[in-house]
Design a protein around this nucleic acid. Structure first.
Lengths: 337, 337
DNA sequence: GTGAAAGCGCTAACAC
DNA sequence: GTGTTAGCGCTTTCAC
């Protein structure tokens, strides 16, 4: 990368200004010199330094992607879809797994600001709300959120799935199978809260008794482990649930483990349904009913929102809400009694 | 990010050179001015622009990570471990999923070179061998490989797992369970070839007949699908195998599907073992025996190798080989006949 | 239509 | 110990 605009200019017998104009297609240049310079660029295999360009106040064509944990397959999928769209538009993604740790978040944000990334995409939970608000309100750098926590008071672009609807659909479906006592295993997240809202609404609409003791919230760390414990509790309840709704696939899988240890057969003795439609749900035995999020569409839209802001093609802030879709497999069935 | 070294210099009543020296801890500066300038930096919340620094020929503290597909959980895990170590050392990772597509590879490499990344980490398969060789030999930019295809003729740092040993261990284990006809479902990759070598060696050492028709190689795309087809073929063989070794977990899962459709129970009628110890292997029913790679250690070492080259702390090229470890679960058992 | 020159924010000789 | 100055590779007025 040692050949510069000067080399091109010299070899072509023009000034660097001319070369620059040709590269950026600005100003007016005669066809003749244009052709000549382009030939030289080709010959020298000249590639402009984006560092130097950036120093002139241009875009760096780099986006920071902050997610809780890249090793979590669902986030990896998000990241992949985001990367794809970014690549199409000529942007690169710097990956940042925050572990929802305040310090890691702060370090990453600070470093990426120093590197002058053009914008941030923040997925799911961002622990340091103050930092997030600062980023959105004070720093002038564009931000877009996906599957985000509640920042309804902030003017920020976002793409989310309608979790309320997802929760509603699942519950409605389970009710239609005849289940009346439906356990809910949640995690501490906005999405879970919304799904619970949907669950509750469906229950009430159906005229079924709404019992709060059927809703358990898990700690994040060993997801399946916590879910297993929670499910055990549910299964030991006096009127044990005939169905369990896991706020994500891992939680549902934990529930299945607990059920097995309890001597229950899925779905005969207990219906279980998850959320996210991860690979895991497909390879489970029996295959797990779940809810599919339009991940590809989410990735695409969030990148589009962000890059539009970066390139000043849009002033207004936008919130996009996409709809989830029920995926029925073999872990759920009509209540048998 | 609009406050510059000039602002600091002015406010502190010194020259930018002095500020620069303080930032980089070079030259000699009196304690007094040092303190004063640092106070000003703090007050102004000054963060040096890494773009400007980079333009002076410094590191960009950015590494390009090229992997086939981030959405594949095993690569996502790699990426996460690499990201972690990089972050510890102050480097960021630009994620590039190549889909082992020549054009995508070329685009990414070209763009990252323009951005002056300090080095590349390339995982698994890189389709465009010419480009790879060029990168290593002609461009002066450091490269390190993990789980890579064979480039034994090139002087490049690499970290790999001893796939030969992995294949050997698995086969030895299956043989110890009394299996004599062991099917092998592979993919088109160096790692698979090595694992097959280990498999063959163990078979021969044990004095068991080596039958090439038991080895099938799958196309990559719908991994499990192909594996299922391959396994079906194996199970329809005259002397059908009593065990199947999948070169990765997905292939093993495909084999299990085929076995089920064939009316076989795992592991009673057929032992199945995978490779990689992905999440999937843990949630399968029955839990899948497999081979664990020391992913974290691989990530750590490859980043260390690369950054040492970047910071010129090491001249010599190094190849690190780590050892895999057998993980025995419930998908394998003593042959029952 | 083209080029001279200043400047983006920082570093590194080299003076003083 | 500290400051002056000339770049790093590119863009962008503003003359010509």
């Amino acid at each position: 990368m040692s050949i510069t605009i000067y080399d091109v200019a010299k070899k072509a017998g023009v000034s660097t200004a001319t070369v620059s104009k040709i590269i950026n297609n600005t100003g007016s240049i005669s066809e003749r010199t244009k052709k000549k310079v382009q030939a030289v660029m080709k010959e020298l295999q000249y590639q402009p330094s984006l560092i130097a360009t950036a120093l002139n106040g241009k875009c760096t064509y780099t986006i920071g992607l902050l997610i809780p944990d890249l090793a979590n397959p669902i986030f990896a999928e998000y990241a992949r879809c985001i990367e794809d769209r970014a690549q199409e538009l000529g942007f690169n993604i710097i990956m940042c797994s925050t572990d929802t740790d305040i310090e890691r978040e702060a370090k990453y944000v600070s470093l990426l600001k120093q590197k002058c990334v053009d914008g941030f995409i923040i997925a799911a939970k961002f622990e340091n709300v103050k930092l997030l608000k600062d980023l959105i309100k004070n720093d002038k750098i564009p931000v877009a959120l996906i599957a985000a926590q509640d920042v309804s008071e902030l003017p920020v672009d976002s793409v989310t799935v309608d979790d309320y609807l997802g929760g509603y659909q699942v519950t409605e479906y389970l009710l239609s199978l005849g289940h009346k006592r439906i356990g809910f295993i949640a995690e501490e997240a906005r999405s879970s809260k919304e799904r619970i809202r949907g669950y509750k609404q469906a229950i009430i609409e159906a005229g079924v008794e709404y019992d709060e003791s059927l809703i358990l919230v898990c700690k994040p760390k060993p997801t399946m482990g916590y879910a297993e414990v929670a499910a055990k509790k549910l299964l030991e309840l006096p009127g044990r649930p005939t169905a369990i709704f896991g706020a994500n696939d891992s939680l549902a899988i934990g529930a299945i483990w607990a059920a097995r240890k309890h001597g229950l057969t899925i779905p005969k003795d207990l219906s279980v349904i998850g959320f996210d439609n991860t690979v895991m749900s497909q390879i489970m035995e029996p295959p797990l009913s779940t809810v599919q999020q339009p991940i590809q569409e989410i990735g695409r839209q969030v990148v589009d929102l962000l890059t539009q802001k970066i390139e000043r093609k849009r002033k207004l802030t936008q919130r996009v809400v996409l709809l989830p879709e029920l995926v029925i497999r073999q872990s759920t069935m009509k209540i048998s009694k």
